Computed example of a mutant assay.
Amino acid sequence: MVSLSRRRTDLLAVARRYAADPASWPEPVRFDPVERWYRRLAGGDEHEVWLLTWLPGQGTDLHDHGGSSGAFVVVAGALTEEIPVGAELRPATLAVGQGRRFGPRYVHRVTNRGDQPAVSVHAYSPALLRMTRYDFDGGRLRVAEVAEAGVAW
């Protein structure tokens, strides 16, 4: 019997593989005092991989990944991830080596709340084409902006 289901890529394993091999990164990490720095490490039919750096206080807005599934792993420092649960944003701090997998409808905000720079590796499948940014008001997500690949990043 032939299976018609495709084997899913473990995106957290992909992120961990790239995180474990900084010598393969096309350039050394940089930190930008104005905004988060990011570079695409790899892209293909199954997934794409991004390297991000975060100075203390830098973070994202509340956002989704435009229908892509994903994962990220912390390479240096610590990151706080917040997800909407009911009427609140529930935080969780991820230290070096910790990561998170998420599906195509996942909404979160990631911030460096620590006092040291942070580095993370992110993997997405399919490749990111858009990201929706949200406001969180009274337990409700309201679309603030839809950002398109090639335009916003």
Rank of each mutant, 00 (worst) to 15 (best):
V14F: 01
G57I: 07
H108W: 06
A147R: 15
G114P: 05
A78M: 03
Q58D: 09
E48I: 04
G99P: 07
D115W: 04
S5Q: 13
E48P: 02
R40D: 01
G44E: 08
V29R: 12
Y124N: 00
L62N: 02
D137S: 12
S5W: 11
E82H: 15
R8V: 05
R100I: 04
L89W: 07
R16C: 10
R6G: 12
P91M: 03
V49Y: 00
G97Y: 10
S69K: 09
T80W: 10
A19D: 04
E81T: 12
S120M: 07
V143M: 09
V121M: 00
H108Y: 06
V29H: 12
R100G: 01
G77A: 11
A149M: 12
S3P: 07
Q58R: 02
F72Y: 14
L51W: 02
G57T: 09
G99Q: 02
P26F: 09
R101P: 02
V74I: 13
V107E: 07
G150A: 07
A92D: 11
D64A: 04
V151G: 03
A78I: 06
R90H: 13
V143D: 08
A76Y: 03
P26T: 06
D135Q: 12
L94D: 08
E35Y: 13
D137I: 15
Y124C: 00
E88Q: 13
G43A: 14
D61P: 07
P56I: 05
V29N: 05
H47I: 01
G139E: 07
V96H: 11
D10Y: 03
W37D: 08
V14Y: 01
E81A: 05
A149F: 13
S125H: 03
L55N: 09
R7D: 12
V85E: 15
R101Y: 01
A71Y: 00
W153Q: 06
S120T: 09
G43Y: 01
